[in-house]
Amino acid sequence: MKSASDNIPALYFYVESWITGTQDLTPQQRGIYIQLLSHAQVRNGRGLPNDIVKLSRLCLLCNPDDLDNWEEQKKDLYFILKSKFILKKNEEGVDAYFNERQQKEYEIARKKKDQVLQANKKYNNKRAKNNDIVTTSSDSDSDNDIFNNIWNKLTYKRGSKKVAEANFWKIPEDIKSETIIKKYNELCSTVDDPKFVPHFATWINQARWEEELPVKNEDEYSGMRLIKDDDYKKWVSWVKRGRRHLSISDDMVLKMKNEGLITEEEYKAW
């Protein structure tokens, strides 16, 4: 069954190759040759029929009943088929004529077109999954509309918006935009100063929506925050990644090492 990628309407035509490859042909033979190439192209890889009468009609030759010219034209047709084409089975198992160079170029073009179609399908699937955050979900929504809605919902808009958008479209399809927004804003809520929030583009590129965030746990007493003895355990994942925070003290890191929560190398790296 033919797919959309099988339809390759353009024929590669290298002028220099045509001139050198047909310089020994008569005008009639050149006319037959270009007609056969053109019809082979629109048949989308199926080749030309193994039928001399059908081929003569494709080449706009005279009616076979016109014996005065038919024999001469038939000789030229056979000559072009023999010298410029090969007879082999097509994908349907039928004998057909193919020009080898044209067929190779057709297959290359078909693969490229198929890659583009697959990329577009993946892209459109991703857009469809992100329609839940778009204010208006019509087909006319642009890519900017999708990302702008994400950007506008971030607590802190850190770094280059353009780079962040480029990184966003590389995210796997199964990661929803609402997850990205939620996870980034959760990270923003753990810091007291926006300058400690990573740039959104960097955060996306490092797939940091997967990381486990420390949970703020504050006990209020007379307006003062009380630090519990086990608070340092909430920051182990940060230290392991080499990420710093104002709430992480050197004493905490030393305690992590002494309790085997981090390795000696991770402690030295800190």
Rank of each mutant, 00 (worst) to 15 (best):
Q28W: 03
E265P: 02
E218G: 07
L154Q: 03
I34H: 04
R127T: 03
N167Q: 15
V215K: 05
L60Y: 10
L226S: 02
S160Y: 10
I32R: 00
L48C: 02
E211Q: 12
T263N: 05
A40Q: 11
H245F: 07
N44Q: 09
E165C: 12
K153N: 13
L60P: 02
A128K: 15
S5Q: 11
D231M: 13
F85H: 08
A40T: 10
E165G: 06
G242W: 11
I19M: 12
K162L: 03
N63A: 08
Q73P: 12
L55W: 03
D114G: 05
L55K: 09
N63E: 09
V197H: 04
K255W: 09
W209F: 12
T155K: 14
F13V: 07
S5T: 01
K216W: 06
W238I: 01
Q35T: 12
L87N: 04
P198I: 14
I108V: 14
G159P: 01
Y184L: 09
K122Q: 14
W70G: 02
W203G: 00
I19A: 04
K216G: 14
T202C: 03
E259V: 05
K255N: 11
S142K: 11
Q103R: 11
K54G: 01
T135D: 00
Y184D: 06
Y267C: 04
K195G: 00
D230K: 06
N130D: 14
F168E: 08
N185P: 05
A119N: 15
Q73V: 09
A201W: 04
K255A: 00
M252H: 04
I248H: 01
L226F: 14
N185W: 10
S160K: 14
K88Y: 01
R30V: 12
H39S: 06
Q23H: 11
V42K: 13
Y184E: 04
D174L: 03
L58I: 15
V42G: 02
D230H: 07
K129N: 14
K153Y: 08
L61P: 07
T135A: 00
K157P: 00
I133A: 05
V42M: 10
L60A: 12
I181L: 03
R127F: 03
N124W: 05
L37R: 02
D114K: 15
Y184H: 03
V15L: 13
I19W: 08
I108C: 05
L87W: 02
I248R: 00
E92A: 14
R225S: 09
E16P: 01
D24S: 14
D141A: 14
E107I: 08
N125H: 13
D132A: 11
K88D: 05
N69L: 13
C59I: 08
Q73D: 02
I262K: 02
Y33N: 00
V191T: 10
K161Y: 12
E16K: 15
I150V: 15
I8M: 09
Q206L: 13
Q23F: 08
L67K: 14
E211T: 08
F196V: 10
V215Q: 07
L58V: 14
V53Y: 13
G93W: 09
K82I: 06
I52T: 03
R241H: 10
Q115A: 14
S83H: 12
I181H: 03
R110Y: 07
D219W: 07
D251I: 00
E91R: 15
K195H: 04
F98A: 10
L67P: 02
N144K: 08
S3F: 13
K162W: 04
S249Q: 09
N144G: 07
V134W: 01
F168K: 09
L11G: 06
